[in-house]
Amino acid sequence: MNVSVVVFPGSNCDQDAVRALASFSGRPVAQVWHGDPALPAATDLVILPGGFSYGDYLRTGAMAARSPIMEAVRRHAYEGGLVLGICNGFQILTEARLLPGTLLPNKTLTFVCKPCTLRVERTDTPFTGAFRPNQVVQFPIAHHEGLFYLPEKELDELEQRGQVVFRYASPEGSVAPEASPNGSLRNIAGIVNERGNVLGLMPHPERASDPVLGERDGLLVWQSVAGWIEGGH
């Protein structure tokens, strides 16, 4: 699979994503500068990495969402290509209107960095095919703005269309509000667009992809994407 990681000024998880994907796929991972007009040809998956693009100034993700490369990312998504926004990348996708909603400051009003358990809600997306239904996995979170927000009615529609892919859950799989580390509405940790080819995820699968660091559930995401691409989608 061909992966491109976009580097914005202030991205700081870009190299982590590059390493995780290069190590998983055994292929070089392209790094694309935010000012570039185009993605490398034959890109299967574009990753918008975590970090503090433009210092998180004004609103998280707002300025990155308006950088030149985002036109190419939008086109890639429109043509059915895969896009994964992790943490700040998720915030950028909402600001770019590639995903609905927005990410507000955590209910704790502090940055929160810790391992988190998530329940996978759908296994028929390009990003979750390798998961078992309702599987509980562990990815770390590290963010200050992770409270997913949409007005109530739109949230209901989002749920009805099955766009919620990951929820914060207890290790046993309960998605009671206490299991959410940031107060996210309905414990939402990750959503896809209607078509299912754009995923925004606050937790960090690239930080759970190396046994030396203790967690490896993130590999399931890469396995899912690889399987999807091999399946000829």
């Binding site: 004004l58 609103r59 707002a62 300025m63 308006r66 600001e95 927005t102 507000l104 949409l150």
Partner: peptide, 9 residues
Amino acid sequence: EDLLVNGLI
């Protein structure tokens, strides 16, 4: 409209 304000919230 272009940048300074997120009209959703």
